Simulated scan of single mutants.
Amino acid sequence: MTTERYASYDGTSLAYRVLGPGPDDGPHGGTGDGGGGAAPVLVCLAGGPGRDAAYLEDLGGLDRALTLVVPDLRGTGESQVGVDPAGYSFPRLAEDVEALRAHLGLERIALLGHSAAAVVAQAYAARHPERLSRLVLVTPGTRLQDRPTADAQEIFHSRSDEPWYPEAVAALEKLATAHELAEIKRLLTRVAPGTYGHWGPRQQAHAAAEGDQLHPVPRAAFWQGVDDAARRAVADALGGLAVPVLVVTGDRDGASGVAAGGVVAAQFPDARHTTLPGCGHYPWVDEPEAFRRLVAGFVAGG
């Protein structure tokens, strides 16, 4: 796996990696729908916001069935830092995705957004619906829809008998008012057990990397400059999206919960909401096989 680069709409040099089939069956050319025997292409966006895409890994082995194109969003990973902080807002990040699609030479792409990046993916769908073949939103929140849900806290607190809970719940209370990134990183590490389906060695190793993968400016600027009218315009446009949408949630997700998935799915004319048992906020980490089957089948047309 090698890192490749492209120039976005303003000349910023951004990085991406291709996982899965080799160059002969890769993403350069065609529709992105898997025609002519090529594996379907799925562009995968990392959340955080402002987190390196490395945490997506291979999305539970999803690259066995699909060609995954995994960009480092502006200011993260190996991508260049943007000159204008406004470029980190989610509508502008969607334009980086469009520049990537054009660079790949694809007529249309299937697009996956995890957590905060589900907002970027929805902004892309609103602005470039003709460029999408399928949309996958994994453990999204509802800030874009301005419809808060409460079940994430219920899920988190339902695990009060687990040994990590006392320290995690104390950190969760402090996280609501934390502003310094160093403090946020420390608290996220302590809260992490409540965001996974189980807290084993695999989950612990995945969570331990988060602090070093977060970037303060992209994180802080994600929602900046997006007023209520602009936010509503994105959400309203999604009611006319004519492509299939899959919303994936985990029944043990103490970060976003399950109800948020229903709210997000309800705005689309052709969406299905699937909740994976035993999964938290990172379902490819908790139940990789179930996640892989679900997403690969959907992107391939199932």
Score class of each variant (00 low, 15 high):
Val18Ile: 15
Pro21Gln: 05
Pro23Asp: 15
His28Lys: 12
Gly37Met: 05
Gly47Lys: 01
Arg51Met: 13
Leu59Gln: 00
Leu59Cys: 07
Gly61Ala: 00
Gly61Lys: 00
Asp72Leu: 04
Gly77Gln: 02
Gln80Pro: 09
Pro85Ala: 01
Gly87Ser: 12
Tyr88Arg: 02
Ser89Gln: 04
Leu93Pro: 09
Glu95Tyr: 09
Glu95Asp: 14
Glu98His: 15
Ala102Gly: 11
Ala102Leu: 10
Arg108His: 00
Ala110His: 15
Ala110Asn: 15
Gly113Val: 04
Val120Ser: 10
Arg127Leu: 14
Arg127Pro: 07
Arg127His: 10
Leu135Gly: 03
Leu135Arg: 02
Trp164Gln: 10
Tyr165Glu: 10
Glu173His: 11
Lys174Met: 13
Ala176Arg: 13
Ala176Thr: 11
Arg186Val: 12
Leu188His: 12
Leu188Tyr: 14
Thr189Ala: 14
Gly200Pro: 01
Ala205Ser: 10
Pro216Trp: 11
Gly225Met: 04
Asp228Cys: 03
Asp228Ser: 10
Arg231Cys: 02
Arg232Leu: 13
Ala233Pro: 04
Gly239Asp: 09
Leu241Tyr: 02
Gly254Thr: 01
Ala255Ile: 10
Ala265Ile: 06
Ala271Arg: 04
Pro277Tyr: 07
Cys279Glu: 04
Gly280Trp: 00
Tyr282Phe: 14
Arg293His: 12
Val295Cys: 14
